[in-house]
Amino acid sequence: MYTWEAIQEALDRIEQELPRGIKTEWLAEQVSLSPFYFQKLFKRLVHKSVQEYIKLRRLSRVIEELNQEDRTITEIAYDYHFSSPANFTRVFKETYSITPEEYRKKRPRLNTMIKPDIALTYKDLDENIPILIDDLLLEIRRETLETEETYLGFSTLVDTAKQIPMGESTGIDIPGQCWTRFHQEKSKLKTVINPDFEMGMSYGADPVKGTFHYFTGALYPMPQEISEPYVIQSLPPGNYIVCRIEAENFETLVCEGLDKAASYLLNTWLPSRSLEIEPFSAEKYNLAETEDISMELWVKLKEPTMN
């Protein structure tokens, strides 16, 4: 067994045991590693300590429970191995900056820890050949965009450090909130947009401030002068690498599929081929496509410089 396979097995066991207490030493024993090397490898591959990861995954599962109105917060706290409702509230607020009661009342989108797929890091996807990994179907291809695509919607500023998987923190899912805002306003734009085609874009990163901009909107076939709060964002012509992602349901697609595909494409696939990209990425949704639950992640290749 490769060491990464041992950690993947540990991640699988954690999912099974989330409602119960999970000791690091027990996990190490289950995958035949010493506690010392198990913790070292876990931190290197998952980028979290064992117990921090367990806490964040447990809270992710708890959020699903909070969306069920028939469960009390006290019941949920004890069901997921918190020592008391007060302890549960403290940990939840430390992680997401709101209490469980506030979450249940307002239902904001939260930036939660998903279960990583370490195996994906060690796979080399050939172009134009789909591969099934867990519950996701991925396929990478090259695409040339001949003419600019223009979209109309909203833009917001995001703190990079507070957005998993780019950062190491959790909290309110700012890009998710931007999508919520757009979908609340979308009907007001129906006379000027093509509602079947939507795009989210990360762009305008500022490494000094540790921020980037995130845009959500729909295709804007005949651009014209606009007024605030709406903004226009364009996908420029050029050569792209496109990762198509399919999932069994939309929640898995946007909550897990996008993060896993982006991490693999940006951190593994592109570097292994020495391909450089422009400083933005776009996620495109074709809502007219009814056969599959899918989306596409687009990154633009840098044009070779002329000496």
Score class of each variant (00 low, 15 high):
5 E>H: 01
6 A>I: 09
7 I>S: 03
9 E>I: 10
33 L>H: 02
36 F>T: 15
37 Y>I: 13
43 K>A: 08
44 R>W: 07
51 Q>H: 12
52 E>V: 07
55 K>F: 14
59 L>R: 11
60 S>T: 05
63 I>G: 05
63 I>C: 09
64 E>T: 00
69 E>Y: 03
73 I>K: 00
73 I>H: 01
79 D>I: 07
80 Y>W: 06
80 Y>S: 11
83 S>D: 05
87 N>F: 08
88 F>L: 02
89 T>E: 10
99 T>P: 00
101 E>H: 02
103 Y>E: 01
105 K>T: 04
105 K>W: 06
106 K>Q: 09
108 P>G: 12
108 P>V: 04
109 R>G: 10
109 R>I: 09
111 N>V: 12
112 T>L: 04
113 M>A: 11
115 K>E: 08
118 I>T: 05
119 A>I: 09
120 L>S: 01
123 K>M: 14
124 D>A: 15
125 L>M: 12
127 E>V: 13
128 N>E: 11
128 N>R: 04
134 D>K: 10
136 L>I: 08
137 L>V: 13
138 L>H: 03
138 L>F: 11
140 I>E: 01
140 I>P: 03
141 R>T: 14
149 E>F: 05
153 G>M: 04
159 D>Y: 15
160 T>W: 08
163 Q>E: 06
167 G>S: 05
168 E>V: 15
169 S>M: 09
170 T>G: 11
172 I>Y: 10
173 D>P: 04
174 I>S: 07
180 T>R: 06
181 R>I: 12
183 H>N: 10
187 S>D: 06
190 K>R: 04
190 K>I: 07
192 V>H: 06
194 N>H: 07
194 N>D: 05
195 P>Q: 02
195 P>D: 09
205 A>L: 15
206 D>T: 01
210 G>Y: 04
213 H>N: 14
216 T>Q: 05
219 L>Y: 00
220 Y>W: 11
223 P>L: 00
225 E>L: 09
228 E>Q: 00
229 P>T: 04
230 Y>R: 06
232 I>H: 01
232 I>K: 02
240 Y>S: 03
240 Y>R: 05
242 V>F: 06
246 E>F: 13
250 F>E: 09
250 F>T: 10
253 L>G: 06
253 L>K: 05
256 E>I: 06
262 A>T: 14
264 Y>R: 06
272 S>K: 12
289 E>G: 11
291 E>C: 15
292 D>V: 14
297 L>R: 01
299 V>T: 08
302 K>C: 07
302 K>M: 08
306 M>V: 15
